[in-house]
């Protein structure tokens, strides 16, 4: 039985146009909505697979306010079986603060007879992209950590993890407990079913508070890169433009 804790983050959608808040301190996603980071979706999928194959529990956790319940419910709908919301004002949280809040919640829950054999996080958040929460969390808990992992298998208290390396697929082996940062590409996230959604509504979410004195994220401001005026030169419409395209490819020196 492997109990898996998967830590997720609510992030603004990146499919629409990005607007900044008036004070330039945050992203205004009211119109585009929120989602999970792509890596987090894969971490959730991985957690569900491991928990199911070992008759363990897959618990989803996030640090934030009530708004994050949307992402927690989505993770429950696809198969997580328990949920924790670590309530905190994360506005100025940096990666060290998020890791400290998670570590605090893990420690306090583990004293209550729960153990998390494996903690999964997304490799890096789609919004802040700090690449640090998994590593900082592992150090705080004194557990080994891997990042950039595509697939995770658990057998008899050992984790076999695979990730993409410069010379092929790198294989790692760790004893549990451990922390692993999952990257997109190894598993395909499943879609929620209707019964799954119904069940997600009924699953209780444990609300806990974390005692963290935030060190902050160092953010002075956000800014949009200067928008380049479109300089596109339209070569034509339809197949008739092929000659112009090939002329251009010769001019650029990539056709010979």
């Amino acid at each position: 039985m492997t109990n898996v804790l998967v830590c997720i983050k609510r992030v603004p959608e990146t499919s629409g146009q990005i607007l900044l808040s008036q004070d330039g301190q945050s992203i205004d996603a009211r119109h585009v909505g929120y989602t999970l980071s792509a890596h987090d979706e894969c971490a959730v999928e991985q957690a569900i697979q491991i928990a199911r194959s070992t008759d363990g529990e897959a618990t989803v956790l996030t640090v934030g306010n009530d708004d994050s319940l949307e992402q927690i419910r989505n993770a429950l709908a696809v198969g997580c079986t328990a949920a924790v919301l670590v309530e905190a004002d994360t506005e100025n949280f940096g990666p060290a603060d998020v890791a400290a809040a998670i570590a605090d919640a893990v420690r306090s829950r583990e004293t209550d007879a729960t153990t998390y054999d494996l903690i999964l996080v997304g490799n890096d958040a789609a919004d802040t992209g700090d690449f640090q929460v998994g590593v900082r969390l592992a150090y705080a808990l004194g557990r080994p950590v891997l990042t950039g992992i595509g697939t995770v298998e658990v057998q008899d208290g050992t984790v076999v993890a695979r990730g993409k390396g410069p010379e092929g697929t790198e294989v790692f082996e760790l004893s549990l407990p451990a922390v692993i940062a999952v990257q997109e590409g190894g598993v395909e996230p499943r879609y929620p079913s209707i019964p799954g959604r119904m069940k997600a509504k009924r699953t209780p979410v444990d609300m806990v508070t974390a005692s963290v004195s935030p060190v902050g994220n160092g953010r002075a401001a956000l800014r949009l890169p200067p928008s380049q005026p479109s300089v596109v030169e339209v070569l034509g419409e339809g197949p008739a433009a092929a000659t112009a395209v090939v002329d251009l490819l010769y001019k650029l020196g990539v056709a010979t």
Binding site: Q228, V234, L235, E237, G238, A242, V246, A255
Partner: peptide, 29 residues
Amino acid sequence: MVTKAHYAVIGDLHEIVPAINEELRRRGS
């Protein structure tokens, strides 16, 4: 993608790409 590009062709890739391939082959690429 079009407004950020340097050059663009408007139309269906399934018509345009074969035409580009044919033109490249014709010129001996």
